[in-house]
């Protein structure tokens, strides 16, 4: 028996919208830790890791140890679009061997209750082990600013060079029509903490990434006012959006390398 009640149902809607362009189908794992997912895009360039901790749910029951539920994200998105933004979402499933999951949507006033049953699928998921890493640079900045930069640069070029120095974090691209550079300096003298840009740098780092993926990651912007970008010269970048009181969604992207 699995039963998860999420008062802030809009969080789940936003999470799925941020994933569905990169992943077609994925196993959601339910364990005592929480509701989680790890999935790679089909070309094995980007990986998404989601955790919604069990204590972030109003009610969390998962009796079956680790219980994977394979879902087609396009179908899940269709169903979650039927939930109102203020609805409470409850996810129910009988457990391993059962091939359906039920989503129940309750309006805040309890006047309307809907349930949608969705077929589960068997998915051979490939799970990558990601060790804890020491990063050369960790930058926290407003998520809307990061999204704006990725969108702006993708009208000029296909790749972005992200460089962190003492001066700040620089995003550069070049294309047929010209070049673009955007530098964000550390800025902690802001009225609201979420507007700050904070740079922790052990050593300068510069890496090149496909902008198409970065732009997809920014679909998670509605989940958090800030984004954390962690870079090391010999590792994929980690772009993390914290999900208030509940967990995170992390996007890992392999760099472009010199041939």
């Amino acid at each position: 028996m699995l039963e998860l009640r999420l008062v802030q149902g809009s969080l789940l809607k936003k999470v799925i919208e941020s994933l569905k362009d990169l992943v077609n189908d994925a196993n959601f794992d339910c364990s005592s830790t929480g509701f989680s997912l790890q999935a790679m895009d089909s070309s094995h360039v980007a990986l998404m890791s989601l955790l919604l901790r069990s204590d972030g749910f109003e009610h969390y029951r998962c009796d079956h140890g680790n219980f994977p539920m394979g879902m087609k994200l396009e179908n899940l998105s269709k169903i979650l679009k039927c939930a109102g933004n203020d609805d409470i979402i409850t996810i129910k499933a009988d457990g391993p061997g059962n091939d359906t999951v039920t989503f129940m949507f309750e309006s805040p006033s309890q006047e309307k209750i809907a349930d949608y049953e969705m077929k589960l699928m068997d998915i051979d998921s490939e799970h990558l082990g990601i060790p804890e890493a020491e990063f050369h640079a960790i930058v926290r900045m407003p998520s809307s600013e990061f999204a704006r930069i990725c969108k702006d640069l993708s009208s000029i070029g296909d790749t972005v060079v992200i460089s962190v120095t003492k001066e700040g974090i620089k995003f550069s691209t070049k294309g047929d029509i010209g070049t673009a550079n955007v530098v964000c300096r550390q800025n902690t003298t802001v009225d609201k903490p979420e507007d700050a840009t904070i740079i922790e740098m052990q050593q300068p780092v510069s890496l090149t990434f496909a902008l198409r993926y970065m732009n997809s990651f920014t679909k998670a912007t509605p989940l958090s006012n800030t984004v954390t970008i962690s870079l090391s010269s010999d590792l994929p970048v980690v772009v993390e959006y914290k999900i208030a009181e509940m967990g995170y969604i992390r996007f890992y992207l392999a760099p472009k390398i010199e041939e």
Binding site: V45, L47, H127, L128, G129, L235, Y252, K256, E258
Partner: peptide, 14 residues
């Protein structure tokens, strides 16, 4: 020219 690296070259399958 740049080549897109794969995640498989950084992380191991479990």
């Amino acid at each position: 020219p740049e080549m897109q690296a794969s995640l498989n070259s950084f992380y191991l399958f479990l």
